[in-house]
């Protein structure tokens, strides 16, 4: 009797295997003609990268391309490297990746190129020399983002008629993320140049995890009674920092701003915890990445200012494609965007 159940179980497993095999062979011959593109975010399942996926899918439908949008569920560089290898094995033509670490995927990208894959980066760059990536699709010049973040904070505090002197905190994402680290460099530069009375505490890296970001911010708020302002410079850390500040009832003393999605921030902007914050349009960034990928693969990506699909003013220069200047979101315009 017992034995029977076991053999049934084995038989079922074999049956499942057969079904999967048939399923695979059935879908083997795709009908789409364009290149097969793999687009990889730093991690999946956060609002920001869901918004970029939306734009990427829009562009893929428009151009008739086969797109797969997938990535690790933790911001782990070695998972990205592994997945690049898998995509190469599967025969993809173009791989566009937002690297968690600028060096971590260099070898994987090189291997992919040797197998004939076109590679590019988006959202955050890999080391151009070691990775050999063709171009970097950048949301906005890093300098502009870093400066804007500091200016928004300084102007916000000065508008309330207070002095800038005091302690400030940056809540970042992953310790080795190239874009976040570059923005922080420019933020420090701006502070040194224009607002020398602002003092930076050591920044926090909660690994794109909202719970950890909130806990770490709450700890910093408790430890520094004189905290003047907090930047959350990822889409995850800003709402977490805002929540921690609101929960600590310090929103009137601590100016919170940074980078995030309107959809994540609506609550905090409406209740006054956050007055204004900075971002580009992530849907457009995903959309642009697919257009660039298609042109790269076809070999007709030209330098200069040009239109790509519905985006009119895209700047291509020196191995970078730039979406445009960063935008400011506040109570007036936060309801105008669906991302």
């Amino acid at each position: 009797m017992r034995q029977n159940t076991k053999f049934t179980a084995s038989a079922q497993l074999i049956a499942v295997a057969c079904c999967i095999l048939i399923g695979c062979s059935g879908s083997q011959d795709g009908t789409l003609s364009g290149p097969r593109i793999g687009m990889m975010p730093k991690l999946i399942g956060i609002g920001y990268f869901e918004a970029t996926r939306e734009g990427a899918e829009e562009a893929a439908a428009e151009l008739g391309l086969e797109l797969t949008y997938d990535g690790p569920h933790l911001d782990r560089s070695e998972d990205q490297a592994q997945q690049i290898g898998e995509w190469t094995t599967l025969g993809l033509d173009v791989i566009a990746v937002a690297p968690v670490d600028p060096e971590g995927i260099s070898e994987a990208l090189r291997d992919a190129q040797r197998a004939g894959v076109t590679t590019l980066t988006w959202d955050t760059d890999a080391n151009p020399e070691t990775s050999g990536r063709s171009v970097f699709v950048n949301q906005a010049p890093n300098e502009a983002i870093g400066y804007k973040l500091v200016d928004v904070m300084a102007e916000g505090i000065q508008a309330k008629g207070e002095s800038l002197a005091g302690n400030y905190l940056i809540v970042s994402g992953s310790a080795t993320a190239s874009n976040q680290n570059t923005w922080m460099e420019y933020m420090k530069q701006r502070i040194a140049d224009k607002y020398p009375t602002m003092k930076l505490l050591p920044h926090l890296t909660p690994n794109e995890d909202r719970q950890r970001a909130q806990e770490q911010t709450a700890e910093a708020l408790a430890a520094h009674a004189d905290l003047k302002g907090i930047w959350g410079i990822t889409s995850v850390s800003l709402p977490a920092a805002a929540k921690a500040t609101r929960d600590a009832k310090r929103a009137d003393q601590v100016y919170v701003t940074g980078l995030s999605l309107p959809s994540e921030m609506r609550e905090y902007v409406k209740d006054g915890t956050v007055e204004q914050f900075v971002l580009w349009n992530p849907v457009d960034l995903g959309y642009l990445t697919i257009h660039v990928a298609q042109r790269l693969h076809a070999g007709n990506l030209q330098s200069g200012s040009q239109a790509m699909g519905r985006l009119k003013n895209v700047e291509v220069r020196g191995g970078e494609v730039i979406l445009g200047p960063p935008m400011i979101f506040n109570r007036e315009n936060i309801d105008d965007h669906r991302f």
């Binding site: 999967i20 695979c24 190469t88 197998a115």
Partner: peptide
């Protein structure tokens, strides 16, 4: 049962490979 699971895994992988040489890079990690 373990054998079946292994067989399913192997067929899943090998039925879809298009650039077999690159499989080595997938295995290394």
């Amino acid at each position: 049962i373990r054998g079946c699971l292994l067989a399913i895994g192997l067929t899943l992988v090998f039925s879809q490979v298009q650039r077999p040489a690159a499989l080595v890079d997938v295995w290394l990690p």
